[in-house]
């Protein structure tokens, strides 16, 4: 019995790639997530799929995690994917533009058709709970008196660019400590090993609420619903803005008819109340942007990052 099934199973495995290409979407749609499983980008993709299945009941979606090198590997894989619409992917800032700026990437923003943005995670400035610093003014003043050690997530990350922007505004120089990610930053702040840290809201709001650390500013246009007591940088006289966005893209060369279908799917998911509720539950801050809006955002971001790169290349 098994002997007979075996060749059959084998034949099926072999035949899969040749499955007839009927009307799009046919066959599984792969979403490339340029980070490892378990992160917030990964979660966004998986929630997106849950909702997208409702609108395209016949399509199958799979996540492909291509982590590492600050997302570069994944971004390149999206850009170089076969342009048949069966592969789309996610991008996140500032990494997606930072790789272009530092001339490491084998893609440019033109390699992508941008579908739109889903969520963002605003940048914050946080100090240890025991620190006397309570505002950005005091932070800048302290930095002028002595060298403050400030943790950021790696060179070229959103944290790093935000810290550089703040340095420029406040005319100070930090003793910057690059880390391998938010876990190290959290431990350094909670343990009082550094004087401050630039990081993202979702990574620290729980500790702020539990009074284990203090967020002294949020670097977005308006205050966050989650922490209405934290003033923005603009309010405090330091108009520094930074946020980490997470959106969807497709390879640029895909047939325009298929791209229209994908854009339509994206808009439908973004209007799906169940998806929105799920995101909220996951502590994601929705920042819906249409394709053209997000393209403009990415281009501005790239120009901005370019400026800081030229001053202090990495």
């Amino acid at each position: 019995m098994l002997k007979r099934i075996a060749p059959l199973a084998l034949a099926m495995c072999l035949a899969l790639p040749f499955a007839a290409q009927a009307e799009y979407p046919s066959g599984p749609v792969t979403i490339i997530v340029p980070s490892n499983a378990g992160g917030s980008t990964d979660a966004t993709a998986r929630l997106f799929i849950l909702s997208a299945k409702k609108f395209w009941p016949n399509a199958e979606f799979v996540v492909k995690n291509v982590g590492g090198s600050g997302g570069q590997k994944g971004f390149e894989e999206i850009a170089e994917a076969k342009p048949d619409g069966q592969t789309i992917g996610m991008v996140f800032t500032t990494q997606v533009v930072a790789h272009v700026v530092s001339k490491r990437a084998r893609y440019t923003l033109d390699s992508f058709h941008v579908m739109g943005n889903v969520a963002d995670d605003p940048e914050i400035v946080v100090v240890p709970a025991t620190s006397p610093i309570k505002t950005l003014d005091e932070f800048a003043k302290a930095a002028k008196q002595k060298s403050l050690t400030v943790a950021v997530n790696g060179i070229g990350s959103d944290d790093f660019v935000a810290a550089k922007k703040f340095e420029e505004r406040a005319d100070v120089t930090f003793n910057l400590m690059p880390t391998k990610g938010s876990t190290e930053q959290k431990a350094a702040i909670l343990g009082g090993h550094v004087d401050g840290s630039f990081m993202n809201l979702s990574q620290m709001f729980a500790q702020h609420k539990a009074a284990q650390a203090r967020i002294i500013a949020i670097l977005s246009k308006k205050r966050s619903e989650i922490l209405p007591d934290v003033a923005t940088g603009i309010e405090q006289g330091y108009p520094v803005e930074m946020t980490a966005t997470r959106g969807f893209v497709a390879p640029a060369k895909v047939d325009p008819a298929i791209l229209a279908k994908l854009d339509d799917l994206f808009q439908k998911v973004m209007a799906d109340p169940e998806f929105l509720a799920a995101c909220k539950k996951n502590n994601m801050y929705l920042l819906p942007m249409s394709g053209p809006e997000y393209v403009k955002y990415l281009k501005d971001e790239q120009a901005d990052t370019q400026r800081y790169f030229e001053k202090n290349p990495w």
Partner: peptide, 20 residues
Amino acid sequence: LGIPGNSVAAALLGGLMIHG
């Protein structure tokens, strides 16, 4: 503290946060 001890704990943390 919300500081994951390793990558598994980080993923677990995500699971906790989903439920508030």
